[in-house]
Design a protein around this nucleic acid. Structure first.
Length: 345
DNA sequence: AATACGGGGAT
DNA sequence: ATCCCAGTATT
């Protein structure tokens, strides 16, 4: 028995009962796939359930304000997924009469839908013979066939896609694609795979050559940038504060935060003072005090954010301010949400 | 061809 | 600490 039948047999024995596997509704499958990009099933599951509850159809999602979509997405990360999710829902409703494209090419044209996701939706919903290649598939194929081409090189991406196409089962593409990913997630895991009771052990090249723990090859040298954030938490006598929406290019686009002063290093109060006065959105303050003596270090994949929260009390009334009780309704980064939880006013 | 883009869980 | 997760878009 060759590769694909063994994967299918294993899948029929070991598959998890996941809600997006009980439907061929392209909307729900698409929603699950966007949520699961670079995200573990356990982390994405509650978000999927909340999104389906809040937006049962693509029309409901398209008609929602972006802020509500971002709020539901809060904590999941990679927020461009949420913005593209919303934009694509509008596209599907306005340009495609509420119906998702049913081909790889049509799906791939949607914002936030790349090679993997287009293949996944096309095969899961429409039985299109398109192989999925995600992190699980890279691992399974590189080990079973003993391929040491880096999976994140241009050559590797092309090579593994072609290999995946050669070994797939076109007649059972839905279960096969689900199966190889599930096999990678459960059986052929990154650390400590269960090779001793693996149905592919007799023909797995990596196992024969004792290279299981060296595959796949991933040339991933991300360098971390240190940044220094000073958040200005304004409080007036009426219990209002100031939140601003992030715009522009970098992290957390369209999410909210307190007024931010970024610096080249950690600052003392006397160094921060003049910088605050340059910032004309902030009124005269009666008191400035550092909330956290030790900077909070918030770690992103490419940045470490060394953060100080400064409490600024003012006797002015913050006209454009937000009542503190209402800030929970805004989509904010986890760094901000964690701080809000700790501060009692 | 590289890099940016989050957050959390497992080891 | 390090790895990596049902990747995509941009430079």
């Amino acid at each position: 028995m060759t590769f694909a039948p063994k994967i299918l047999n294993w899948y029929h024995e070991h598959q998890r009962d996941l809600p997006w596997r009980q439907t061929r509704d392209p909307y729900k499958v698409w929603l699950s796939e966007i949520i699961l990009q670079q995200t573990r099933v356990a982390q994405g599951m509650p978000y999927y359930l909340r999104f389906v509850e809040a937006f049962p159809t693509v029309h409901d999602l398209a008609n929602a304000p972006e802020e509500q979509v971002l709020k539901l997405w809060q904590g999941l990360g990679y927020y461009s997924r949420a913005r593209n999710l919303h934009a694509t829902a509008k596209t599907v409703v306005e340009d495609f009469d509420g119906k998702f494209p049913d081909t790889y090419k049509g799906l791939k044209s949607l914002k936030g839908v790349g090679d993997y996701t287009a293949s996944a939706i096309a095969s899961f919903c429409f039985d299109a013979p398109e192989p999925v290649v995600d992190g699980n598939v890279y691992r399974v194929l590189s080990r079973y066939f003993g391929i040491d081409i880096p999976i994140n090189s241009t050559e590797g991406i092309k090579y593994f896609k072609e290999l995946a196409r050669e070994v797939m089962d076109s007649e059972n593409i839905r279960d096969y694609n689900q199966g190889i990913m599930e096999f990678g997630a459960i059986q052929c895991a990154p650390k400590k795979p269960y090779c001793l009771l693996c149905p592919l052990q007799e023909s797995c090249v990596a196992l024969q050559e004792n290279k299981v723990d060296q595959l796949p090859i991933n040339l991933n040298k991300t360098k971390i940038r240190n940044r220094y954030f000073n958040y200005l938490v304004l409080l007036d006598d009426d219990g209002n504060t100031i939140l601003e929406q992030r715009t522009g290019k970098g992290i957390w686009q369209n999410l909210y935060q307190f007024p931010l002063i970024e610096s080249e290093r950690m600052l003392q109060a006397k160094e921060l003072r003049p910088l605050i006065n340059e910032n004309n959105t902030v009124p005269e303050t009666e008191s400035l005090s550092l909330y956290n003596n030790e900077p909070v270090v918030h770690k992103l994949s490419h940045q470490h954010l060394h953060t100080q929260f400064w409490i600024l009390k003012t006797s002015d009334i913050l006209k454009e301010g937000t009542p503190w009780e209402e800030i929970g309704g805004f989509p904010v980064p986890v760094l901000i949400a964690d701080f809000i939880k700790t501060l009692k006013i």
